[in-house]
């Protein structure tokens, strides 16, 4: 729509007037009016703004020490700036075991996702097939239990299974005539043990998302399948699975985005201070954690962590993009 000359001139005049306007006019503008009327909302936001500001955004600035030779007593201002030296060290020096830290991080994630993902899916479908609602709810409650237990306690439960003196697993091995295994000194078993313990702890809880998607499947679809002569197996394959496919795909993509993440809490709790397992269980998170608690090289550890979270961020963004391309909602 074309504006008439007079109207345009009037508008320009108004704008000029606005520019020339003093603080009084600013105070009468719409936004300021809103702020004045709804100042309480900022009070509602204030505590979280401060906490997030200090601990989340503040710590983002703390990344600066990855580019320093940081010393705790000297502080950020007193420590020497060394540029990319810490990163160069990580990628050059073999003594740091860089390769091993990243390899273990990625392998542990991949084995966990590869085993847990399909088993959880099958378990969800089977739970869904339980006919009595009461029993279904009971099974679910039991399966949720491990989710609420700390890894420290899971480490204690696992110790009862793995210990050489009277551990349950070795007693079972003895029953079938096998030699006992020294679980806490055999590094080769631990990728498997970590995957199984993740499954035990997370399986029940992970079904929630799928089951809530199952609830939204149209019941008429099942009836239609039944009329066509489909049994329960057929129904599970032809109705249930397609019905939750979007959630399955989304979950898989999210999992892939988290490959660079590691669960140092789980690993430290499970390995029970055993030094001989470091070959397969040393991950980036353990390196950072022990640097902070045991007086290690803080700058180096921060650089390690920064590489990890940068790659992690890229993976999450890529997988989010893929999810959107695949027609899913994505996470942002």
């Amino acid at each position: 729509m074309k504006k008439t000359g007079a109207a345009a001139a009037g508008e320009a005049k108004k704008r000029r007037h606005y520019i020339r306007a003093g603080w009084k006019d600013v105070l009468q503008s719409k936004t300021v009016g809103h702020i004045k009327r709804h100042w309480m909302l900022y009070l509602f936001l204030l505590p979280s703004l401060i906490l997030v500001g200090i601990f989340s955004y503040g710590s983002m600035f703390g990344i600066f020490i990855a580019f320093q030779e940081y010393e705790l007593l000297a502080g950020v201002s007193g420590s020497e700036f060394v540029g990319l030296k810490n990163f160069a060290d990580i990628f050059n020096a073999k003594t740091l075991g860089t390769y091993r830290y990243f390899r273990n991080t990625i392998y542990i994630s991949l084995i966990r996702i590869g085993t847990n993902f399909p088993i959880i899916l099958i378990y969800t479908l089977l739970v869904n097939e339980i006919r009595r609602r009461r029993i279904k709810s009971l099974v679910q409650t039991i399966s949720f239990l491990p989710h609420f237990i700390s890894w420290a306690v899971v480490g204690g439960l696992a110790y009862n299974l793995f210990t050489v003196n009277g551990g349950t697993l070795n007693k079972l091995l003895e029953l079938v005539g096998q030699e006992p295994v020294f679980w806490y000194s055999e590094a080769k078993y631990w990728w498997g043990i970590l995957a199984v313990s993740s499954l035990w702890k997370g399986m029940g809880w992970a079904t929630i998302m799928y089951l809530s998607a199952l609830g939204s499947i149209d019941g008429e679809l099942y009836d239609a399948c039944l009329i066509d002569g489909g049994g329960r197996f057929r129904q599970a394959i032809s109705v249930t699975l397609p019905g939750i496919m979007n959630v399955v795909v989304l979950q898989l993509i999210l999992d892939m985005g988290g490959i660079m993440g590691d669960n140092y809490d789980q690993i430290i709790s499970m390995i029970n201070n055993s030094q001989s397992l470091s070959e397969t269980t040393n991950v980036v998170g353990i390196l950072t954690f022990s640097a902070a608690t045991g007086g290690g090289n803080l700058s180096q550890a921060t650089a390690f962590g920064l590489i990890q979270s940068a790659i992690g961020l890229i993976l999450v963004l890529i997988s989010n993009r893929v999810a959107k391309k695949a027609g899913q909602a994505g996470i942002v």
Binding site: G58, S59, F61, I65, A292
Partner: peptide, 19 residues
Amino acid sequence: IYYLIPMFFSGGMIPVYLI
């Protein structure tokens, strides 16, 4: 956006420790 960013990127354990 202010609340969203920290969900995707954090400084890591040691910077928080120093804070």
